[in-house]
Nucleic acid binder design. Structure first.
Length: 563
RNA sequence: GCCCCAGUAGCUCAACGGAUAGAGCGCCGGCCUUCUAAGCCGUAGGUUGGGGGUUCGAGUCCCUCCUGGGGCGCCA
């Protein structure tokens, strides 16, 4: 895996020091050396503005500093040209030979060519999904699971050891309400005139599940004591119905999990007691108004105190979150924990950070990744989603109608901090023109070329990559080596949306190559392509297939051989 | 009232503090006897919500105002 940016930054730093030793530059502290990709080819493959930033410390014109740095730049075989341009940039152009070698390197290293070692094996847990388990996932949660799953892929590629977790909130009042609602639907299915609780879950899905349970179990739960019946329905509803549907929806979208963590286990295994004791010892708990409070206001006057144990004796959600995160960071010892949360939970972030401090943990070990909520447009109207009111579009339904790859791409192509509108009608209607198909089409075309090559007996074996000198070929190679930088950017900023843009750019460059450079000899007439060039281009095309497939894989999408 | 996020082309959205702000969709016009036309080429479209400031340099950082979304519960 090439680390061009890092090598360049180091070399620039070295050159400045050398020039300073030779008294060609005055002594000054070298600032961070930013390496960027210029927008125009006339500025080379990479550029740095470090001389512009240094000008005020060096008390010299940026152009003059740049000239001195270039003079002392260490010799390398992978750079062809180093130039200076106004108002003081240093521009670097990669050697053609080095670029061509990367094709061989990609073929040799395969899909892991672009992986980096940013994480150095650190153990990170990404928790995503984790909706209240009281019904099927709605569309809005698609954004949550797609961001989380893709981020996990990216961090894995960036050298972290990743665990993917779903937190099942199977304790608390919402579950109780769910059980009562399900009981009512079950009873109604058997002809009993039992009303839904006032704040109960109204969704159609509960009526279906009630019906199913009535068919499977008959009047069993009507005859049982109410408490016992509610417990049984809660268990059946949660394990069989809710989690069953969530697992199915995730699977349909290609969302993977390594672990499903049940909230109730925090109580049954003593985790909850342990953390409460810790907080008590640190004098952060206070009994007041019949409840027990976490006195966050003593830690930070921006914060309000928070109830941890309600006057009913039941722990509140914040209490279980403390225990849960203690479990992740201390008991299970993850170096870093990332929770993917919707913007409706943002108010919870400062409390969680304060809680980390209260437990004596470094707050940076916990990242709360907040994504802005999705607004749904259907039939030209904005729809408000509410599971309890039953107005929802189910994620599974969306996946069936629009297709998993298109759904993922749609949710993925926006930065997490920007609001997005999902126009369901447009997504269905335009599924053929969705950019995801553009990327997949490029992959399918490559597969087609390779099939055709085999049928005609053309082979890449012995292909000489130094024949790959056409501008379209070199542009493709340049884009391929960029994937490492994209993975890094996505991992550092927790911004998986960069992948979608990269994928489109790579596909575009392949399309241009396809237009300008024939791979296989023409069947009839001339001019054709020499055998040498065919072999070299087959190597290039195979490499592109690897990088494109890897990019699609990181986004959790399929790389079709035919379309 | 206080806190968080956003405001960029007709629409949906990009842009590590860097050079001339970019894509897709949509509009209009071209290109299939040749490896997949789900493709390619061309045209049009912008005072980056308004106003100040910091900086060699601001869509990006700071202040302020306006607009939209979210939060401020013994729900999660």
């Amino acid at each position: 895996m090439p680390r061009v940016e890092q090598d360049l930054a180091l070399a620039v730093r070295k050159a400045v020091r050398k020039a300073q030793q030779k008294k060609e530059l005055p002594r000054f502290e070298v600032p961070e050396v930013p390496i960027e990709r210029p927008k125009s080819v006339e500025w080379g493959d990479y550029a740095t503005a470090v001389c512009l930033a240094s000008a005020r410390w060096a008390k010299m014109a940026p152009m003059d500093i740049a000239a001195q740095v270039v003079k002392r730049f260490p010799k390398t075989d992978w750079l062809a040209e180093i130039t200076v341009s106004h108002p003081g940039y240093i521009n670097f152009t990669l050697a053609t030979g080095w670029l061509q070698e990367q094709v061989e390197a990609i073929l040799a290293q395969g899909e892991r060519y672009s992986d980096i070692d940013l994480g150095q094996g650190k153990r990170v847990q990404v928790e995503y999904g984790s909706a209240n388990p009281t019904g099927p996932l709605h569309m809005g949660f698609g954004r949550n699971v797609v961001i989380g799953d893709t981020l996990a892929n990216v961090l894995d590629a960036a050298g972290y050891q990743v665990q993917r977790e779903y937190y099942v909130n199977d304790a608390g009042t919402q579950m109780g309400l769910f059980a009562e609602s399900l009981f009512a639907r079950y009873a109604q299915a058997l002809g009993e005139p039992i009303q839904l609780p006032e704040d109960g879950y109204q969704g159609e899905y509960l009526a279906c599940w009630g019906q199913e349970i009535a068919e499977e179990h008959g009047r069993e739960f009507l005859e049982a004591p109410r408490e016992q019946a509610l417990e049984a329905l809660k268990r059946i509803g949660l394990e069989e119905k809710v989690l069953g549907s969530i697992r199915a929806d995730c699977e349909a979208l290609g969302i993977r999990y390594d672990n499903w963590f049940h909230e109730t286990s925090l109580y049954s295994e003593g985790q909850f007691e342990t953390t409460m004791t810790m907080l008590r010892q640190r004098e952060l708990l206070e009994a007041r108004e019949g409840a027990v409070w976490f006195t966050a206001s003593t830690l930070n006057d921006q914060l309000k105190d928070e109830v941890v144990i309600r006057s009913s004796g039941e722990p509140g959600y914040f209490a279980s979150d403390i225990a849960y995160h203690y479990n992740k960071l201390v008991e299970r010892g993850f170096d870093w924990v990332i929770d993917v949360w919707g913007a409706d939970h943002q108010g919870h972030v400062p409390r969680m950070k304060a809680m980390m401090g209260a437990l004596g943990l470094d707050p940076d070990r916990l990242t709360l990744l907040i994504y802005q909520l999705v607004t749904i447009k259907m039939g030209g109207e904005d729809i408000r989603l509410s599971k309890r009111a039953g107005t929802m579009v189910e994620l599974g339904e969306l996946t069936r109608e629009v297709g998993a790859d298109a759904v993922r791409f749609n949710f993925l192509s926006r930065a997490t901090e920007s609001q997005m509108e999902f126009d369901v009608d447009l997504a269905k209607e335009q599924s053929d023109r969705n950019p995801v198909y553009y990327v997949q089409y490029a992959h399918a075309r490559i597969a087609s070329i390779l099939r055709e090559a085999e049928a005609r007996g053309c082979s890449p074996t012995g292909g000489d990559v130094t024949l790959l000198a056409h501008p379209a070929e070199l542009a493709l190679i340049r884009k391929m080596i960029e994937l490492s930088a994209v993975i890094e950017k996505a991992a550092v900023n927790l911004a998986p949306h960069h992948l979608t843009y990269y994928a489109q750019e790579l596909a575009t460059l392949f399309s241009l190559f396809y237009r300008d450079c024939r791979v296989l000899p023409r069947k009839t007439g001339e001019p054709g392509v020499t055998t040498d060039k065919t072999a070299a281009r087959l190597k290039l095309v195979e490499a592109v297939k690897i990088i494109l497939a890897r990019t699609l894989d990181l986004m959790g999408m399929s790389a079709p051989e035919r379309m």
